[in-house]
């Protein structure tokens, strides 16, 4: 993960992006919705479909061609899992420093290969299996509905999609707008993980507080808290962890949401957050209440 990629997203007035898989049903629908929101979609890429246009956006055969013509800086990837890696590789190798990988059910070895490739190329890949990232009132590179999100100074990092919308809705209603809301993804491996997000947010003066929306499975929340404790200081933060009553050894919808033995329980995550003085909300509606307390409002 390259923190400058996220800085670029937050600091540019309209980041030009391409849509990989733009001619598919989902790709086309979300191109339209992103354009409506004000996202600068400058091109689409589908091999063999160059020359067409989707919602007025020109389609190219290759990422290289699209970048040369449009000067795009980022990509959103809707390409189906079987062809996902090839498409994502093309984006990274074409010099794009930010890729948002919406695709679900990507084989984990393809994700690991992509992670390595992105590190070698100093690029950021968000996802896979993410709803994307939104800078409210400015741009969204993702599939989230716009209504729950309002402009503000809170950063939301979430392992889940719909839950991120629900959390944003409660935050917005209570006057806590968001500077950014980013889905790190529901898979076991996230190309940009929670630790990297928290490190990045630390350097942002325009972000006042952080909400972490975690869930069962893995130990990314525990590792992140350990990392923050080592660093010493952090932004005001509230956490929420879904799945307190999830059964063990069962994959709960997300490939990454699984408790193995005592590894990945909500209990462990909640204990770790609370042990570090980070309040944990018990339901989404409680998040703004806890955040208000943390910010002494």
């Amino acid at each position: 993960m390259n923190p400058q990629s996220l800085d670029m997203l937050l600091d540019s007035a309209g980041l030009p992006i391409i849509v990989q898989g733009i001619t598919g049903k989902i790709g086309s629908l979300h191109t339209e919705l992103m354009l409506e929101y004000g996202t600068k979609v400058v091109g689409g890429v589908v091999p063999g479909k160059g020359g067409q246009s989707v919602h007025g956006v020109p389609v190219f055969n290759t990422v290289k061609e699209a970048v040369a013509v449009t000067s795009a800086k980022a990509s959103i990837n809707f390409v189906p899992a079987a062809f996902f890696f090839g498409a994502a590789e093309e984006a990274v190798r074409s010099g794009l420093k930010l890729t948002v990988a919406i695709t679900e059910q990507v084989p984990v070895r393809d994700t690991l290969k992509l992670l390595k490739l992105s590190e070698e190329n100093n690029a950021t890949v968000i996802g896979p299996n993410t709803p994307g990232v939104i800078v409210p009132s400015r741009t969204k590179i993702g599939i989230m509905p716009p209504d729950p999100f309002e402009k503000g100074k809170v950063a939301v990092f979430s392992r889940s999609g719909t839950l991120m919308y629900e959390v944003a809705y409660h935050l917005s209603r209570s006057g806590f707008g968001q500077a950014i809301a980013l889905g790190i993804g529901g898979d076991p491996i996230n190309c940009t993980n929670l630790i990297e997000c928290l490190d990045w947010v630390h350097g942002r003066k325009d972000i006042e507080a952080v909400v972490v929306v975690g869930e069962i499975g893995g130990d990314v929340e525990e590792k992140a808290v350990e990392h923050l404790s080592k660093k010493g200081n952090r932004k005001p933060m509230v956490a929420y962890v879904a799945g307190r009553y999830a059964p063990k050894e069962k994959k709960m919808g997300h490939a990454g949401a699984i408790i193995l033995g005592s590894y990945g329980t909500a209990e462990s995550k909640i204990k770790t957050f609370e042990g570090a003085g980070i309040p944990v909300a018990l339901r989404p509606a409680e998040i703004p209440v806890k955040l208000g307390q943390v910010l002494k409002r």
């Binding site: 979430s158 719909t162 799945g243 999830a246």
Partner: peptide
Amino acid sequence: NGAGLVLSTLDLVVDNGGKPACFLD
């Protein structure tokens, strides 16, 4: 709709004394 949302709903059900029969995302 959405794994996290359903997980969160299970938690709310149990917190309120209910017992979920299944999780369907």
